Computed example of a mutant assay.
Amino acid sequence: MATIAGLLTSPPALAAIVALIVGVATVYATGALRRHVFEADVGLAALCAMKWQDFATLVGSFLGERGLQRSTSERKLGDGGFDLLLERGTSSYLVICKNAGGQQVTPQNVTDLQRTMQHEDAEGALIIACGRADVATLDLARSRGIEVIAGHALWRQIRHLLPYDIRDEAEASARRMRSRRLWIAVGAALLAGALAWAAASGLGSTPDAAVDRPQPAAPRPVAPAVPPAPTAATPVPHAAPSATGTAPGLPDPTLSEAQLETRRATSAMEVRSIPGVDDASWPTKSTLVVSMPASTGAVPDTLLADVCRVLLQYEEQRYTRLQLEVASGVEDQPPTVRWRQCR
């Protein structure tokens, strides 16, 4: 007990303990160690940005590795309530492809696909989706003989079929996100440690400590010191230019078009998650359309600030034109359009 009490009254020891506790708590609270989760989120954003036809082709290649081959029968994608008709021997399998991030797999999707299986006399069926599926939906699908591969599970199984630059960008983005969260944890730990040190130092310096001390003799008067003569100010050297000779903050010219498209898809996904935003998409490389529900007032400044915070993560999106579309709330009446720019 005496040792513990000594640690709690020692400013350095108390600061170290508080910093350690706060640092560990912040790491777990921000999920800084879950790099695979960050990578999956960025990779799924890239899958969402693909054209549906390309996504369906990718799914066909993925299932081909599992021994399922495309049927030789003539049919169009999406006919009959399913997208792909695959075969293994004499058995047929139906596949539904969903590559929109907001398309969650629901129990209704499972029920509809089961009816189609019975109508087509199929052996089994699969739902491949970028969105997520809850536990109840997965259990229902398993009981109906339907396999659901959605969300992070899809990324883990299909990532090796994607181009290298998309996988590399997902891994690099995951490292950056983990690094930012770790630095946040370090900053929080240092701040908490400094506050604990200051608090412990203030409690330790009480007036009672000086009660029994002998009073010092009155000091003899001393002539005021003559201030030294002023000297020439030493010039402050200018900051040296960067080693590469380029100004910091410029867009990286080595980024490929696929990497830029992945970053735009990531921004659109983050904007969709902002409260008050219905949808976000890139009709062009320099214009982001943000759709919002009907409102009688102006676009909230906080919403615009949240959208800009997302875009300013990437230098090439700094001068993006924002096309803000507010629904009119009246059927057949077009939305109100406002234009903004973050910088």
Results as ranks from 00 to 15, higher is better:
residue 54 D to V: 02
residue 214 P to C: 01
residue 108 Q to K: 13
residue 101 G to K: 09
residue 188 A to I: 11
residue 63 L to M: 12
residue 44 L to C: 10
residue 44 L to M: 13
residue 180 R to A: 11
residue 21 I to H: 07
residue 114 Q to E: 11
residue 114 Q to I: 10
residue 90 T to Y: 04
residue 141 A to P: 00
residue 211 V to S: 03
residue 311 L to F: 03
residue 255 L to P: 13
residue 108 Q to M: 06
residue 25 A to V: 13
residue 171 E to A: 14
residue 233 A to R: 10
residue 1 M to F: 04
residue 247 A to S: 14
residue 68 L to C: 04
residue 27 V to I: 02
residue 23 G to V: 03
residue 2 A to C: 07
residue 81 G to Y: 05
residue 137 T to N: 00
residue 51 K to Q: 14
residue 204 G to Q: 15
residue 233 A to N: 00
residue 311 L to K: 02
residue 135 V to P: 09
residue 206 T to R: 15
residue 273 S to H: 14
residue 254 T to G: 11
residue 274 I to A: 06
residue 240 A to E: 15
residue 237 P to R: 12
residue 322 L to A: 04
residue 116 T to V: 00
residue 319 Y to H: 12
residue 264 R to H: 04
residue 151 G to F: 06
residue 78 G to E: 08
residue 52 W to Q: 08
residue 289 V to D: 00
residue 18 V to A: 01
residue 304 L to K: 07
residue 194 A to W: 01
residue 252 D to Q: 06
residue 203 L to G: 14
residue 53 Q to C: 00
residue 327 A to E: 14
residue 74 E to P: 07
residue 82 F to H: 00
residue 280 A to P: 00
residue 207 P to I: 05
residue 65 E to S: 06
residue 210 A to P: 09
residue 202 G to R: 05
residue 338 R to V: 00
residue 60 G to W: 05
residue 173 S to N: 14
residue 119 H to M: 13
residue 82 F to R: 08
residue 204 G to H: 05
residue 292 M to N: 02
residue 193 G to F: 09
residue 254 T to I: 08
residue 208 D to T: 10
residue 198 A to T: 15
residue 124 G to R: 07
residue 330 V to D: 11
residue 333 Q to Y: 09
residue 12 P to C: 02
residue 185 A to C: 00
residue 114 Q to P: 07
residue 181 R to Q: 12
residue 273 S to Q: 15
residue 185 A to G: 03
residue 293 P to H: 07
residue 180 R to F: 06
residue 37 V to A: 08
residue 143 S to K: 14
residue 342 C to D: 03
residue 187 G to C: 07
residue 342 C to L: 03
residue 44 L to P: 12
residue 80 G to Y: 03
residue 302 T to E: 14
residue 145 G to F: 06
residue 93 Y to K: 01
residue 6 G to R: 10
residue 189 A to T: 04
residue 200 A to W: 03
residue 89 G to D: 09
residue 266 T to L: 03
residue 228 P to Q: 14
residue 127 I to C: 08
residue 211 V to W: 06
residue 196 A to P: 13
residue 162 L to N: 11
residue 267 S to I: 05
residue 101 G to L: 12
residue 45 A to M: 10
residue 17 I to K: 01
residue 138 L to F: 04
residue 11 P to I: 12
residue 308 C to Q: 03
residue 65 E to L: 03
residue 52 W to M: 05
residue 83 D to R: 07
residue 311 L to V: 06
residue 4 I to V: 13
residue 342 C to K: 08
residue 212 D to I: 07
residue 215 Q to I: 06
residue 126 L to Q: 11
residue 113 L to I: 04
residue 36 H to E: 15
residue 254 T to H: 03
residue 314 Y to R: 15
residue 65 E to V: 02
residue 78 G to N: 01
residue 32 A to Q: 09
residue 140 L to Y: 10
residue 325 E to N: 13
residue 3 T to H: 11
residue 342 C to P: 02
residue 171 E to G: 10
residue 70 R to W: 05
residue 50 M to A: 09
residue 200 A to M: 08
residue 223 A to Q: 08
residue 297 G to S: 12
residue 20 L to T: 13
residue 175 R to D: 14
residue 204 G to L: 10
residue 120 E to C: 05
residue 292 M to Y: 00
residue 86 L to R: 06
residue 94 L to F: 01
residue 246 T to K: 13
residue 195 L to Q: 03
residue 167 R to G: 06
residue 239 A to E: 14
residue 247 A to I: 11
residue 186 V to L: 09
residue 277 V to D: 11
